[in-house]
């Protein structure tokens, strides 16, 4: 049994995939431990969906070694399919069937038998708060309900590895939080989750490990905390009402031995950024120093680093080295990716 814990749920080495001349995935390495949430984070067109499609047997990789639940998606697709569940970016419910019929359809396709299928459908309807809507056509469901039904359908087969491709895009904040809660419960039950998202908050909230994907490469990987540690720390932004005050504050703080943040002084918007660790006592000391020099501060904001900073610091950099035309390029890639699924 110890073996099961050592074997990763997903292992990828040197994965490559192109569409024509366009390289979408360029040598991806990643490992996802069983029973954890792994989040692939990246802007539109970074190759997230292509990655999910390859791992879930929908399309083939051009090269590299892949194991999902111990099997190679290219050589043993049915073994992989039996172990996984996929909730894609576009709602994968049958809109002309009711919620309950959708779940029964999945039960039939998993050959669960009549009684077990009905038991499972009822259980999932209750768990996903769809009991009242069970007899209504899925096409009439709200976006949040469709996503819940979608995920419930994925769970009918009791998959060990679940792929969630941008599961909360287009959902309102409340539905999003509800879905997060469900995802946490799933992992608590031992399931492995591979989640793609462009929401940093989502990855931060859910993921045990995050890989940052940009232009087909993993530009950073680690726990959310590790990633946050990789970028410059937090700062305090001080806003002034007139340039003289700004100048005075800058001189006072430099004289006191405190360094200003690089590019920390903005004379146009009258903002001064001071590096800061977020602790209350050092904030008090900073304000006391300004007070002593009679500097009038208009407003103050404390900024602690979040994944947004990581995202901008890491993807922004690689984008600047490549030419700006990239955004148009990547948007088009997304379309080709969609095309290929059909």
């Amino acid at each position: 049994m110890a073996d099961n814990h050592i074997r990763p749920a997903i292992a990828v080495r040197g994965l490559r995939r192109s569409y024509g001349d366009k390289v979408v995935l360029d040598g991806i390495d990643l490992t996802v431990a069983e029973g954890t949430i792994f989040s692939l984070l990246g802007p539109n067109g970074a190759g997230k969906t292509t990655m999910v499609q390859i791992l879930s047997t929908l399309i083939r990789a051009d090269g590299g070694e892949i194991r999902v639940a111990g099997h190679d998606p290219a050589r043993e697709p049915d073994a992989v399919r039996a172990a996984i569940g996929l909730t894609g970016q576009f709602s994968a419910v049958d809109k002309l069937l009711t919620g309950e019929e959708n779940l029964r359809l999945m039960a039939d396709l998993h050959h669960l038998g009549r009684r077990e299928g009905s038991r499972r459908a009822t259980e999932l309807l209750e768990r996903f708060d769809l009991v009242e809507a069970r007899g209504k056509l899925a096409g009439t469901y709200s976006g949040g309900m469709q996503r819940r039904l979608d995920l419930a359908m994925t769970l009918v087969g009791a998959p060990r590895v679940i792929f969630l491709d941008e599961p909360t895009s287009g959902l309102d904040p409340r539905s999003r939080r509800g879905l997060w809660q469900i995802i946490r419960e799933l992992v608590a039950g031992g399931v492995t989750i591979f989640l793609t998202t462009q929401y940093l908050e989502e990855a931060d909230q859910l993921a045990d490990r995050i890989a940052l994907l940009d232009q087909g490469r993993v530009v950073a990987e680690g726990t959310p905390d590790e990633l946050k540690r990789r970028i410059p720390g937090g700062h305090v932004s001080l806003r002034f009402t007139d340039p003289d005050e700004l100048d005075l504050a800058a001189r006072t703080l430099t004289a006191a031995g405190g360094a200003l943040a690089a590019d920390g002084r903005d004379d146009e918007s009258l903002v001064l950024q001071v590096p800061h660790d977020g602790a209350v006592h050092s904030l008090r000391a900073l304000l006391a120093r300004l007070d002593d020099a009679s500097v009038e501060v208009d407003s103050l904001t404390v900024h602690t680093p979040d994944l947004d900073d990581v995202f901008l610091a890491l993807t922004g950099k690689s984008r600047m080295t490549d030419e700006t035309a990239q955004t148009g390029e990547t948007a088009r890639t997304d379309e080709t990716t969609m095309e290929a699924v059909r």
Binding site: L86, G88, A92
Partner: peptide, 15 residues
């Protein structure tokens, strides 16, 4: 059918 996500779901199932 093909424009809906449901077919991607079917294709990713062991059916």
């Amino acid at each position: 059918d093909m424009t809906e996500g449901i077919v991607a779901r079917f294709k990713s199932m062991a059916i």
